[in-house]
Structures are given as structure tokens and as C-alpha cells.
């Protein structure tokens, strides 16, 4: 029972099908309390479906587990009282003002003084002076802040944030992440889905999901080490042609452009070295052995996963 106390989320083998199509396939997750857990994956990989199963909005077809110690199948009501879920699409009332939205949430959670709670949250969000503005009229960044404010208002122990920073400018994103770290420092657990790689690095731990399957998990370093990818960075002229040529070679698993250079990666070090040997002496090109980036790892994981499924 010790694990239930340490883990905010503990699920095994979650599977969800929609009309015969398996969207989530046997996902198991453990998220320790007080951690920021990054949930990464491309569009349509099953991130939203998994999050919805965690907060009781969807019933898993298979699998079981607990959220804050409550069974996700039978105790959804207890989970809902303690979890703040921020949907991918803005889901507060656009025709209510900032204050009215927050007061509505406070009343739903039977907070003692909804008016004061809303006022305090408006202040915390830095929305003073905008409290009477309609939620629908706020800019994208402010909407996200308000949505985060609304789901943290009732003092949840766990936040499930579904792509909270999609379509938000970099400054607002940074502020958003500072806020999430501040909340984590207060002891709140957060599961954040995203497809921004730089955001993954702001998480204590990450999991990568594609085609409904969990492909890897751990800290960013662990994920990169575990992938066992060898990467060279090459720069020079005519990189477009070079990319096409390299991609065809056996031993080269992935070639991806990064600014003015290419990342050439392979899982088998000897095969990769052999493949690129003829190009290393080519004039104008400079080759450097480098660390694979998280993105290299994910794209590689995805292509292997796709090979496995097709």
C-alpha cells in the first residue's frame, strides 16, 4: 500500500478502442506525487484518450489502476473532486466573464466563499482589471492562464493538463511553466501532455507515446541513453542532396535537418560508421560526433514503432 501513497497515478494495461480501432494499447504509468510528468507524443497518439481515462471521462476497455489512490473504474467521483483537468480545447464558458467562470467552478466544488476564492485567483493569475472581461474575448495566452486557474482553484492534488501550451507564444509558455513548477513546489502532481521538445526538458520525468503505445519513459537523460542512438552532426554545402543520399544508406536510420546542419543517426555504431565513411573525407563537409537530441530519439522511436505495427 506504500506505493499508492507515493504514486499519484498508478495504472496498468490501459486499453481503449473506438469502433474496433485501438487508440490506446496497454499503457502502464506510475507518476510519483509532487512530480511534473511530461506526456509526449505526436498528434493522434492517444495522449488525450489516456488522460480522459485517468480522470474518469472515458472507461477503459481493459486495464486498471488508481488515481490518487482511487480506482479509476469505480471511484471516478472521488477522483473528480481531487483532480484538475485542463482540456486541450478551451472549455470554460466564453460568454461568461473571467470572474463568473471562476465563481462557477468554486460553487461546483462547494467552496466556502466562491466570491473570495475567485477574487484571490484573479489576483494570482494577474488578471486584475480584466475580471469582467468575457472569457471568449481573452487572447490565447490569457485563456490558457485562466483555464489553469480554473482547474487549480478547488485545490486539486493532481493536475492533468492536455497540451496546455498549444498555440501559445513563447513568453506565455515560459510563464505557464513557471506557474506549473510553482504548483509542483507546493506538492501538486502534474501530468502535462505536449509535443514541444523543449517543454519535455522542463519535466522531472517523461513518457513517449505513439500509435497508442508507450514507447519509452524516464528522465530526459535516461530516455536518450536508453535509445542507444549514435548521432553525427554534419555541416557544409548542398545538404539537401546529401540528406537524400545518406537516407538511402544501410546503417543510417535517420537523417534530419537541424538549422544549417544534418543529424545523421543510427542504432548500430559500426554500420553507421561504415556507411558514412566515404562522405567523411568529402571536401567542405565537417563531421562531428554528437549527443542525439530528444527529438532524434523520438523520431527514431516512432519509425521503429511504425515498422513494428505495419
Amino acid at each position: 500500500m506504500n506505493t499508492a501513497a507515493d504514486n499519484a497515478i498508478e495504472v496498468r494495461g490501459l486499453t481503449k478502442r473506438f469502433g474496433g480501432r485501438t487508440v490506446v494499447r496497454g499503457i502502464s504509468l506510475n507518476v510519483r506525487r509532487g512530480r511534473i510528468f511530461g506526456f509526449l507524443g505526436p498528434n493522434g497518439s492517444g495522449k488525450t484518450t489516456t488522460i480522459r481515462m485517468l480522470c474518469g471521462l472515458l472507461t477503459p476497455d481493459e486495464g486498471e489502476g488508481t488515481c490518487l489512490g482511487f480506482d479509476i473504474r469505480t471511484e471516478a467521483d472521488s477522483i473528480k473532486r481531487r483532480v484538475g483537468y485542463m482540456t486541450q480545447r478551451f472549455s470554460l464558458y466564453q460568454d461568461l466573464s473571467v470572474r463568473e467562470n471562476l465563481e462557477f467552478v468554486a460553487r461546483l466544488y462547494e467552496m466556502r466563499d466562491p466570491v473570495a476564492a475567485a477574487r484571490e485567483m484573479i489576483h494570482r493569475l494577474g488578471l486584475d482589471g480584466r475580471e469582467e472581461q468575457l472569457a471568449g474575448e481573452l487572447s490565447g495566452g490569457w485563456k490558457q492562464r485562466l483555464a489553469l486557474g480554473a482547474c487549480t482553484l478547488p485545490g486539486p492534488q493532481l493536475l492533468l493538463l492536455d497540451e496546455p501550451t498549444a498555440g501559445v507564444d513563447p513568453k506565455a509558455r515560459r510563464e505557464f511553466w513557471n506557474e506549473i513548477h510553482a504548483l509542483a513546489a507546493e506538492g501538486i502532481t502534474a501530468l502535462v501532455s505536449t509535443h514541444y521538445m523543449d517543454e519535455a526538458e522542463r519535466c522531472h520525468e517523461i513518457a513517449y507515446i505513439a500509435y497508442g503505445e508507450l514507447l519509452t519513459r524516464g528522465t530526459v537523460e535516461e530516455v536518450i541513453d536508453h535509445a542507444g542512438l549514435i548521432t553525427y552532426t554534419v555541416s557544409g554545402p548542398h545538404l539537401n542532396e546529401l540528406q537524400a543520399e545518406l537516407a538511402k544508406l544501410p546503417g543510417v536510420d535517420m537523417v534530419a535537418p537541424f538549422g544549417a546542419s544534418l543529424h545523421v543517426s543510427g542504432r548500430d555504431e559500426r554500420a553507421l560508421e561504415a556507411a558514412i565513411a566515404p562522405y567523411r573525407s568529402r571536401t567542405g563537409l565537417s563531421w562531428v560526433r554528437s549527443e542525439p537530441s530528444l527529438e532524434d530519439v523520438f523520431i527514431d522511436l516512432m519509425s521503429t514503432a511504425r515498422d513494428n505495427f505495419q
Binding site: 471521462l57 483532480v83 480545447r89 472549455s91 467552478v105 461546483l108 466544488y109
Partner: peptide, 13 residues
């Protein structure tokens, strides 16, 4: 249609 149902359902009502 407005997507507010999802957040409403995730709350204890």
C-alpha cells in the same frame, strides 16, 4: 458543441 461539456463532466456534478 462549444466543448464546455468536457470540463463540466470532469467536475463533481
Amino acid at each position: 458543441e462549444r466543448g464546455t461539456m468536457e470540463s463540466l463532466l470532469s467536475m463533481p456534478i
